[in-house]
Design a protein around this nucleic acid. Sequence first.
DNA 1: TGATTACTTAGCCATATGGCTAAGCATGAT
DNA 2: ATCATGCTTAGCCATATGGCTAAGTAATCA
Lengths: 115, 115
Amino acid sequence: MAKHDPDLSLLFHALSDPTRRAILTRLAGGPAAVTDLAAPTGLRLPTVMRHLAVLEEAGLIASAKEGRVRSCAIVPEALAPVHGWLDDQRALWEGRLDRLDDYVMRLMKETGHDD
Amino acid sequence: MAKHDPDLSLLFHALSDPTRRAILTRLAGGPAAVTDLAAPTGLRLPTVMRHLAVLEEAGLIASAKEGRVRSCAIVPEALAPVHGWLDDQRALWEGRLDRLDDYVMRLMKETGHDD
DNA sequence: TGATTACTTAGCCATATGGCTAAGCATGAT
DNA sequence: ATCATGCTTAGCCATATGGCTAAGTAATCA
């Protein structure tokens, strides 16, 4: 198990960092330059650059350089695979809820609790 | 930026691995023992155990030991924060689509393309 | 031309991650 | 009582991640 869905892995990994999520939220308000994105993080430019690189490799943002300034913007469609996977899972999970409830009930009775 | 939402970070990180996602999908079909979960992965037991630990720390699964067998089951509500964050973002992102479109159009004209 | 500004690249460092083997320990079967 | 089963722990290893400083490069501005 280490090949399928590189998209999902890249996306989830990109979203797993608070700094990167904050950057995305900030970009939701409109495009911004690298320096402007770095300011509120308290991190150094190279560090922020790498976070941006991770976001861009995941396809979550796009950037373009105008003069000496690089502007970054979100790519809204990029979250589609994530929504898709989550919806699929939710369907599966909910579809099995009864069986899981039964199972949990049985465990409760037999062991008292977990572990 | 390195403190808020430990939940989301844990969840997204847990979901960022294909093996872990495969385990979740498998568990959607009903609870399973550690050995049964390990089989299809081609990985060794200790390795799978650690994946399970990550999933459990994120709250995505729960496990209970019956005799010498540990059974694992998904925790459906666990995905709620993820759905929540994604929906919030989608709302934000879509709310700004016009502005982003304008921006992209402008970039296209000015630079020809990205970078 | 020269100084700023805004990235960019290179490279170091500590910790985390994902894989493994080798033992250990408790439970169920013989 | 013994042995097999199923997990568990400990610990090693290579690579990845997230942070930094220092030293570029390229575009403005004075």
